[in-house]
């Protein structure tokens, strides 16, 4: 078991890029080695140790690394990027690209996360107790696939373009989502317990389950009603434009 505790040193105004905060990068490294890992703040190259107070105990394989972060990380980007295993627990808010491209392990956040959390995620789990920004579980500009696997849970709400280009995996939002959730969904499962608007545009595959839709896309075929886990939903299929086989459930 290896535990790494991270706290921000000073108020960070210019976003830091800290893709080295990851169990994969920490595993088997000493406290000093972790502190000297590269980080960037604006155009200044720096180290994790310069930006954060870091305490490390024990050593272990990636899966045995636990990163405990406490404080305001709302200007720290790319935490847990590409991680394959281990645990990152964050008490506080975080900036963009949390857990981007992660393929395993678990990240939990007690606060809010900014845009592109879980971007191009392949596996593992992301739990966000607060709200998420834009493009949750979406792709990078121009890519055909966003999230491909894993699970994202948001206890609060999320903004626009949630799960864009999803090719797999699951996103659950307890609150509301912004416009065009599940845009170009190509095989992912999205559950929005609250409301959203214009969900499922251009979806070819996958499932979207929504509590309430403010504005429906005019491209879905109503197939009747269906019960999911004992709750009655209107079932739609589409997007008819792309001859889509996606299913959209909207609570009765």
């Amino acid at each position: 078991m290896q535990t790494v505790a991270i706290k921000p040193k000073n108020g960070i105004k210019i976003s830091a890029e800290a893709e080295n905060i990851s169990p994969d990068k920490f595993a088997g490294k000493s406290e000093k080695d972790i502190q000297s890992l590269e980080a960037w703040m604006g155009n200044q190259k720096t180290t994790l140790g310069e930006l954060f107070t870091i305490k490390a105990e024990g050593t272990g394989a990636v899966a045995d690394v636990k990163v405990v972060m406490e404080g305001d990380f709302s200007r720290v980007k790319r935490i847990g990027e590409g991680m394959t295993a281990g645990l990152v627990m964050i008490k506080g808010n975080v900036d963009m690209h949390l857990g981007a491209k992660m393929s395993g392990g678990k990240i939990s956040v007690s606060g809010n996360v900014d845009s592109w959390a879980g971007r191009e995620m392949k596996g593992g789990e992301l739990i966000i107790e607060g709200n998420a920004g834009y493009y949750l579980g979406a792709g990078y500009r121009g890519e055909t696939c966003g999230m491909r696997g894993g699970k994202i849970t948001v206890l609060g709400s999320a903004l626009d373009f949630l799960g864009e280009h999803m090719c797999g995996g699951e996103i659950i939002v307890k609150g509301n989502a912004g416009i065009l959730a599940g845009l170009s969904n190509n095989g992912g499962k999205i559950v929005i317990e609250g409301s959203t608007s214009r969900p499922g545009s251009e979806m070819a595959k996958g499932t979207i389950i929504v509590g309430k839709v403010d504005e429906m896309m005019p491209v879905f075929k109503l197939e009747g009603t269906e019960a999911v886990d004992g709750v009655s939903y209107r079932k739609y299929t589409g997007d008819v434009i792309v001859n889509g086989k996606g299913v959209l459930y909207v609570k009765e």
Binding site: R198, S201, E215, M217, P218, V219, D239, V240, I241
Partner: peptide, 8 residues
Amino acid sequence: LVISALRA
């Protein structure tokens, strides 16, 4: 919405 309707 209008563009999607045209496409449909």
